[in-house]
Design a protein around this nucleic acid. Structure first.
Lengths: 139, 139
DNA sequence: TTCGTAGATTAGCCTTTACTAATTAGCCGA
DNA sequence: TCGGCTAATTAGTAAAGGCTAATCTACGAA
């Protein structure tokens, strides 16, 4: 399991391929560009890189597919995104901002921080504190 | 009040100038490079940019000084860093990782998210919840 | 005073990642 | 079938930010 080390930018592209396939069944260059607010040639170039890394495949002039490894990596990123968004919303951040900030945070946080955030999100709202006295029972 | 828009990298350099001056009284290229784990020419290039932006001054071959605006911006960044580090520590993250992750987060989070994080940090540990019933303090 | 060295700087290169402009491929309607 | 449009690609440019190598400056020791 050689974890591929992706740049933030490539992580964004890969994640978007995954999201568009979930939403529309197909990930096209046009839609990736629109969603990420870049131009199509930027997407094309990123797709070439992701192909080199074995994370996506593509028939010329058609939609982008994920390899099994690509699907794995993409869903890890997407899960981080979802976790972070819930986290920010739990802190009181508005949905739109939570989505935007989750999108930046998902690329940079260490595993340890992500774990702690997960603990926080999974803690019932009432007793969200006391990391030491915590897990006895939900009252 | 024209907020200068700095890249993450330049924010890091400016913040480090400030930190080294607080710690040692002087910010030298050598020490900035060591602290940020880059080589000296990278620092020199960044300092040129910060000079162009009117945030630092420097006598040739000597330490880097902050202009008043540079000091203002630098302390804003440092404050964000301190806030985020406390926040992560409150979540249970270890100090070293909190410091490292705060360093990334400080450049990307929106004002709204920073506000909510500040609220969270300032909330006593026992009743850290209920964002609606919580406080009526106007900032 | 002179020299050696550490720190600072300059020059030039490389990678990443975006862009515009121009070209190519696929497809639909007349 | 033939245009013509849209999507995709290719080619070439630019900026950011890092690096190495080479050079310059300042300063302390001999």
């Amino acid at each position: 399991m050689e974890q591929v080390k992706l740049s933030q930018s490539l992580e964004d592209y890969l994640e978007m391929v995954h999201m568009l396939r979930l939403a529309n069944g197909i990930a096209r260059v046009r839609d990736i560009a629109a969603a990420l607010k870049v131009k199509m040639p930027s997407v094309a170039k990123a797709v070439i890189e992701l192909k080199k890394l074995g994370l996506v495949t593509q028939e010329p002039y058609s939609g982008i597919e994920l390899t099994s490894e690509g699907a794995l990596v993409a869903s890890q990123i997407l899960n981080r995104h979802i976790l972070l968004k819930s986290f920010l919303i739990k802190l009181g951040v508005s949905e739109a901002i939570a989505d935007k900030d989750a999108c930046c945070m998902e690329h940079i946080l260490s595993a340890e921080t992500l774990e702690k955030i997960e603990d926080f999100v999974n803690t019932p709202n009432e007793s969200a504190k006391k990391p030491n006295a915590a897990k006895s029972k939900k009252k």
